[in-house]
Amino acid sequence: MNPPLISIQDLHKSYGDLDVLKGISLNVARGEVVVVIGASGSGKSTFLRCCNGLEAAQHGSIRICGQWLLKDGQDLCDKALNELRRQVGMVFQSFNLFPHMSILSNVAVGPRKILRYSKSESEAMAMQLLEKVGLVDKAHNYPGSLSGGQKQRVAIARALSMQPEVMLFDEPTSALDPQLVGEVLRVMKNLAQEGMTMMVVTHEMSFAREVADTLVVMAEGKIVESGPARAIFDNPQHESTQLLLQTL
């Protein structure tokens, strides 16, 4: 049996006296899509940010792509952390595009600066990724001329340009107008169908039901329920899950 691509054991995170994560453990297999849901303040975004070192947990272990991000509460050095982040792409609520660069340059800059691709190689890859997210025609536009949904699709293409083994999505549609949500979710569904390993924090329940292999429900810094997504949607066991699905 293959080892999990992501293994998280007994993760604890606090800010002063506030305990945000209280012993999170989760394994994610290669090619698996895990969707994390929970009420605001349940710790789900903090949990996701710990998985690429944007937040430092105080206790526990995280192993991703065969490398320890956190082991017995000890963080990676900066060099090792940067190396790991090449394998773990992340898409945020905000798009964080470079406003002074064209869309093509936004996607090509990572491979050119970090992976040492030539200008022509990085731009050829960027065009392939823009085609994947349906934005080839916007390659020479600037971010200011794009809708929110288009900007988020560029952000996904930029994350993919580093050829990651894992993609993390932190509420990728929460800042979008409702009519723009679908275009971003379609790109994410296609990635899932292609076998990308994904962890997604979202409130989009229809996406979770359709795409997730595993649904993880968090409440008050803990995982209160996890398992096959459709089974949990059809028959939630924990009171927090029942309440959450009733309100969303």
Rank of each mutant, 00 (worst) to 15 (best):
Y117T: 03
M101A: 00
S120R: 13
I103H: 06
M125R: 13
L135K: 02
L135A: 10
L115N: 07
L130H: 01
L135W: 06
G134M: 10
G134Y: 12
A124R: 11
K113W: 00
N96T: 00
I103R: 01
K119D: 13
L135N: 10
K113Y: 04
A126F: 04
A124Q: 11
G134I: 12
E131R: 12
L129R: 05
Q128F: 00
Y117N: 13
M127W: 08
I103A: 10
N96Q: 09
A108N: 13
V109Y: 02
V107L: 04
E131H: 08
H100V: 08
L104K: 01
V107W: 04
K119A: 15
A108F: 06
L115K: 10
L135M: 08
K119H: 12
M101N: 02
A124Y: 00
V133F: 11
V109L: 08
I114E: 03
L129S: 09
V136A: 14
Y117Q: 15
Q128W: 05
M125W: 00
L115R: 12
K113H: 03
E131P: 02
M127I: 13
P111D: 12
F98R: 04
S102V: 11
S118A: 08
R112L: 13
N96F: 09
V136H: 01
H100P: 01
S105Y: 00
Y117L: 15
Q128G: 04
S118Q: 06
E131L: 01
I103S: 06
S120L: 07
F98S: 03
K132R: 15
N106C: 09
L115P: 04
N106H: 07
N96E: 11
E123T: 12
S105R: 08
L97G: 02
V136S: 15
Y117C: 14
V133S: 06
L97H: 04
E121G: 04
R116W: 02
N106V: 08
H100F: 05
G134V: 14
V136Q: 14
S122G: 12
L129M: 07
N96V: 00
L130K: 01
V133G: 04
L130V: 02
Q128E: 15
S120G: 01
Y117S: 12
A126K: 04
V133R: 02
A126E: 07
G110K: 03
L104V: 05
L129C: 09
L129E: 11
M101E: 03
P111A: 06
I103D: 06
K113F: 03
R112Y: 11
S102G: 14
S122F: 08
S118R: 03
M101L: 15
E131N: 13
F98W: 13
H100A: 09
M125Q: 15
K113S: 08
Q128I: 03
K132D: 13
F98M: 13
I103C: 10
R116S: 11
P99G: 05
M127Q: 13
S105Q: 12
L97I: 03
V109N: 01
